[in-house]
Design a binder for these strands. Sequence first.
DNA 1: AAACCGGGGAT
DNA 2: ATCCCAGGTTT
Length: 311
Amino acid sequence: MRVPTPTTVAAEVRAALVERVVAWFQAARRDLPWRAPERTPWGVLVSEVMLQQTPVVRVEPAWRAWLERWPTPAALADASTADVLRAWDRLGYPRRALRLRECAQAVVERHGGQVPDDEAALRALPGVGEYTAAAVRAFAFGRRAVVVDTNVRRVLARAVTGLALPAPTPTAAERAVAAAVVPAGDAAASAWAAASMELGALVCAARSPRCAACPVADLCAWRAAGYPGDTHAHRRRTQAWHGTDRQCRGRIMAVLRAADDAVDRTALDAHMAATPADAQVTRCLAGLIEDGLVEQTRGAYHLPREGADAR
DNA sequence: AAACCGGGGAT
DNA sequence: ATCCCAGGTTT
């Protein structure tokens, strides 16, 4: 099928899309703490890492507590592994917590404790990929960046390309469309980044889009085409959960976060909500140790006891 | 390109 | 019971 290239995103459509979505955002934006005037670039970076695969409602309280405890990169850089993992609590993917501390250490060592504002330096930080680097540039520094998250991908897939949902993995054509839509200038580009993400989160939702409340419904290509179905549905595979190593690892981490002392294997098995296969628990423990999330002392397991330095 | 990595709330 | 969520890293 024909995929729009930058030149096929008509200038008038681009202008109307950006102008109206940004205007809508000014009235509809959520008051999230990492958007408050008193936020810091480090606070924005922390929010973006926490928001990697964890919904806003669960990040908000964790973010407040985290920044109250470790307000700066220098503060987090000196935190102990166990403290960091307990504070991360159930945000999920706890390797992100370790990377965030590594990131804090890198900011201290490479950038004098100040979050850098250029894309290459941001990308070089642990746990910071293409999306997060662009988001920090736009949201922490108000600079122009092509910010493409799952929300923006969906908004553009629908409004511009006419698809129900974007492809399972981003395509080159998709990146071209995203880059073509971003307006020139720091202020306009960063406003578009925030506004387009918010539209995808609040209005252009994956399951049940609220087209009646959409500021660009009249120029939406998906709507104009009569809401065709998801062309990639056959290749979309939702991750299994029950019985997976991810679930097993999560249960082990929950037990060890709650424990004051080391937990031997018998006690660990007793604390697991369900009873995974013996071999799976063994495999997951080995993986967690490999990841630096767990340590073993005399046959008992516990969160790492070393400080921030040992790694 | 695909696999791996959590967890909870909505439908 | 299934879907969805402000991705990054590794293979």
